[in-house]
């Protein structure tokens, strides 16, 4: 239908009534959701790594893969679809960034992703009003265009909202 399903490194937004933007199984990846309650405009990006500088070619091919490029691109898309340029009234949430158990600093990519997302949101003058990050489990995230509701689910743990 008009639902948008995002893979790793994808971003997208929808204001079609009854639609949702969804991404599956965030492990150490982070999803940032943006919602404009006046326009009922729902957007999300699924980032996998903090910084694009590790691979320029890939960053040109799939900028949404990296927090430093993907989050601004999502915001640009929201503006293109009618959101105010300064992002006024935009509801931002972040989810994911899980870690493997007993993970050391090297393997804590989830935490680095969360920090990178917060940093880039800060430079855009935004901050998340809610977050569900860290811990040791994956998250499947849906954002509904009609209500702005963000639901999270994980096998064996059920479904919840933030």
């Amino acid at each position: 239908m008009s639902d948008i399903i995002l893979g790793i490194g994808d971003y997208g937004a929808s204001k079609n009534p009854g639609s949702m933007v969804k991404t599956y199984a965030l492990g150490s990846c982070v999803a940032v959701t943006m919602y404009d309650p006046i326009l009922h405009l729902a957007g999300m990006v699924h980032v996998a790594l903090p910084e694009s500088k590790i691979n320029r070619a890939k960053s040109e091919e799939c900028p949404g893969y990296f927090a430093d490029l993907g989050v601004p691109l999502l915001f640009d898309e929201m503006v293109r679809l009618g959101c105010q340029r300064k992002g006024r009234g935009l509801i931002v949430k972040m989810l994911g960034g899980a870690s493997v158990m007993a993970g050391n600093d090297t393997f804590n990519i989830g935490k680095r992703n969360v920090l990178a997302v917060k940093k880039i949101l800060w430079t855009l003058g935004m901050g998340p009003v809610a977050e569900d990050v860290g811990a040791n489990h994956s998250r499947t995230v849906s954002l509904y265009a009609d209500s702005g509701l963000v639901t999270v689910s994980c096998p064996g743990r059920g479904q919840w909202q933030i």
Binding site: I8, Y24, A25, L26, G27, S28, C29, A48, A98, S99, V100, M101, F107, I109, G110, N136, H137, S138, C154, P155, G156, R157
Partner: peptide, 14 residues
């Protein structure tokens, strides 16, 4: 598992 390619309820649980 970190990339989200897990096999279910045991994802990231090792």
């Amino acid at each position: 598992m970190m990339a989200g390619c897990d096999t279910g309820n045991d994802g990231m649980q090792y």
